[in-house]
Amino acid sequence: MQSSAHRSALRRRSARNWTTFLLFAGPNIALILLFIYYPLFANIRFSMLNWRLGADTASFVGFDNYLRFFTSETGAEVWRVTGVFTLATVVGSMVLGLALAVVLNRRLPGRTIVRTAVFSPYVLSGVGVGLVWSFIFDPNLGVLSHVFAFFGKNSPEWFLDPDLALVMVIVVYIWKNLGYCAVIFLAGLQSIPNDLLEAASVDRSGSIRTFFRVVLPLLSPTMFFILITSILSSMQAFDVLRIMTPDGNGTNTILFEVYLQSFGAYQRAGYSASISVVLFLVLLIVTVVQIRFVERKVHYA
């Protein structure tokens, strides 16, 4: 009799817990299913259709859109541009950010103001950043045109030359993300125990040797975190590219290509959807790698 009453009490408690859970988490779960997972699976379905944006009819083509993307010259160019853009922006932001963090980690006058100034571009609107830098790179009226004129040179046609256009957006994106890398590296530098640095000083290890033998290895978790987040950010870059190079012209990264194929002159929504699915899978792999290895922390004790 007591056992039956105990089981009944457990069932009532479980029912109350589930009711409380659904009341609090139910609306969030419904929103996630509606605005994240439903569009995801709908996009996968669209990627198997030959469908132009706005058309009333569409034909099923299976994996033809994926094959076209992986075998066409346009797809190869998208991968090349994405790889160059991602590698250059990630390496540039990390190297310059680390150097800047080392400088800002010293006791210098006004370093708080400098830290704020360095980090501010990261939180600015990409649209505003793109507009300002478009004026800077303008070959006729921009600031850089006056710099080249001072040295007796003509300003390059940044917006017309595909290679120069890619260099231009890489420079802007490194400038925008530099503050983020510097702040994270600075936090990592300040978390290194002073005992280790003092021990290196007692061993008469020079500053350069201490940096490469002591500081840099202890920054490995921070470097890995910045590496993963910078890769994710660079592969999803869009606003700066769209403002500075509206039609691509050598800056067709994979996300920008999704936009151009769907909303540009082609309006190939099915093909665009297949590219976005590929991008989703790449970002998913990078995220899984982060989750798998980010817990490997360095212990200083």
Rank of each mutant, 00 (worst) to 15 (best):
L53Y: 10
S72Q: 12
V84A: 08
G54F: 04
S59E: 15
L98M: 14
R52C: 13
R52F: 13
V84K: 09
V84C: 08
V91F: 14
V95R: 05
L96W: 02
D64F: 06
N50R: 05
G83K: 15
T57H: 02
V90K: 02
G62A: 11
S93W: 04
V81C: 07
M94D: 03
A88D: 10
N65T: 04
F63S: 13
L87E: 00
V84P: 11
F63H: 03
T86W: 03
T57L: 10
W51M: 06
V90A: 05
N50P: 04
L96I: 14
T71K: 05
V78F: 00
E77V: 00
T82W: 11
V95F: 10
W79H: 12
V91Y: 10
M94V: 01
V84I: 14
D56V: 08
N65R: 10
G54I: 03
W79Q: 08
D56F: 13
L67G: 12
F69T: 01
F85M: 12
G54P: 13
A55M: 15
L67F: 15
F60K: 02
E73M: 05
L98V: 03
G54S: 08
V95C: 00
F69H: 09
T89Y: 06
T71R: 03
L53S: 09
A55P: 14
E73A: 12
L96A: 07
G54N: 07
T57Y: 09
F69W: 09
T74V: 12
T57S: 14
T86H: 06
N50Q: 14
L67Q: 15
M94G: 10
G54C: 08
L87D: 00
F70L: 08
N65V: 07
E73V: 01
F70W: 08
G75Y: 06
R52Y: 12
G62P: 02
M48C: 13
V84F: 11
T57G: 08
A99E: 05
G54M: 05
E73P: 05
V81T: 12
T74E: 15
G54W: 10
W51I: 00
L98N: 09
F70N: 02
W51D: 03
V61I: 15
F69A: 00
W51P: 04
T89G: 13
A99L: 15
L67I: 14
T89D: 10
G75R: 02
G83F: 15
G62F: 06
V81R: 07
G62K: 05
F70G: 07
L87T: 14
N50D: 15
G97W: 05
G62N: 06
L53R: 13
D64H: 04
V81K: 03
V95I: 15
F69K: 01
E77H: 12
G75I: 04
S72N: 06
G83I: 09
N50F: 10
G92P: 00
T89P: 04
A88I: 11
E77C: 04
L98D: 08
E77A: 05
T89L: 05
R52T: 12
T71A: 03
F63I: 14
R52A: 09
